[in-house]
Write a protein that binds this DNA or RNA. Structure first.
Lengths: 210, 210
DNA sequence: TAGATTGTTAATCGATTAACAATC
DNA sequence: TAGATTGTTAATCGATTAACAATC
């Protein structure tokens, strides 16, 4: 089966597969079955086969999936066969932590610009990237072909920053601010606000309702 | 309708409602309809009414929901009417950023202990909390009635830390490491790994398949 | 060949949305 | 009273899982 509309739930599992496949590759495992994948990733094997089958026939009956081949294919699907430039807006604690992180470099994703408006931040360096004022955002995003924006500014500034990113032609946003952002339908947005997650965990505590 | 089994999707929306209701309360808005909530939060009004109705009859027909009353009720549902102690394991960049964050204090959630094993971190202070070695985790968690653990250690250490948290009697874990953790069924775990989110965004970039 | 495992269809399960009587 | 909005049932939609023929 080739692509209909692929649901977001499917797309979000692809990086999970990729990560584990990379680990297998590192351990020089050549082949893996949906069964084994399911066990490790806590997913139903049928679901994994179905997810992958949306994009092509990557497996071999009776054998399973060739690890390197599947890595290559998933990387293509996720556009990770080309470099993807990312901008980060908001160089506070969290923003700086994310920049330093940059594990995703091996996945061809790279934060190549950082913006912040506070005067004591502008001009400072975070790991060889100089923090720029936000009014340079639009030009830099265009000039450097930045496709994804990460928002780590405070709550109240998030929508304004999102608008600027959109105006600059960004295609996707990862939003760490605890606000629902309104963006045009062409722009993809994912909420990454962990406080929501953390607070929802409280529901499950004993002494509360089960 | 009173509680059957409430799905995780419902529980995760409660903090979203709560946050916006707090904002309304701050603006001294007294009453809100599911219509208005839905508009602001990008959710279907029927879904909001249904979510709330799982827990009780909080609204008034023809009127809507009393903001303060609904805040009180959601806080009860989420156990936020009592203080919830949180431990953070891993005082790297991200861990320190999260500790400094502590917006959730107003929601009665508080990081009250931080653990790390690297010798240059132990004994240091992060905002009046002294970083402790991980082998003090179990005792501290028990003594201080810590119920939730946040994991911000590297990948390879995450499962070991999770095991220790579980052994110490923690009830829920927020995991920032990009690994699927195995925990006993009594323990609630949420994945908060933003690299997965970020990478999945790449799928939606133009020049890739739509 | 016999055993394993895929790709895919059909069945199931669960979550979202529509519709509306009840009622403020 | 007329208009608004809830709580809830029924309808819809979509995602997960089971099952199995195809085939390595």
């Amino acid at each position: 089966m080739k692509s209909d509309k692929i649901s977001d739930a499917v797309v979000r599992r692809l990086p999970v597969y990729l990560r584990f496949l990379n680990e297998l590759s590192h351990r020089e495992v050549l082949t893996v079955s949906s069964q084994e994948l399911g066990q490790k990733l806590d997913l139903n094997p049928a679901q994994i086969r179905k997810d992958l089958a949306y994009f092509g026939d990557f497996g071999r009956k009776g054998i399973g999936y060739d690890v390197s081949y599947l890595i290559e294919k998933i990387r293509q699907i996720l556009n990770l066969d080309q470099q993807i430039n990312v901008a980060l807006v908001g160089a506070g604690n969290l923003g700086q932590a994310l920049s330093n992180y940059n594990t995703y470099v091996k996945d061809n994703m790279r934060i190549i610009a950082i913006f912040d408006d506070s005067p004591d931040k502008v001009g400072q360096k975070v790991k060889d990237i100089t923090i720029q004022p936000i009014d340079e955002l639009e030009k830099t995003v265009r000039d450097k072909h930045i496709k994804i924006g990460i928002i780590t500014v405070p709550d109240v500034e998030a929508q304004r920053v999102a608008d600027q990113l959109v105006a600059a032609g960004i295609e996707a946003i990862l939003n760490f601010a605890p606000t629902i952002l309104k963006v045009p339908s062409g722009v993809r947005i994912h909420a990454a606000d962990f406080t929501t997650d953390l607070i929802s965990l409280a529901y499950y505590l004993q002494g509360g309702k089960e």
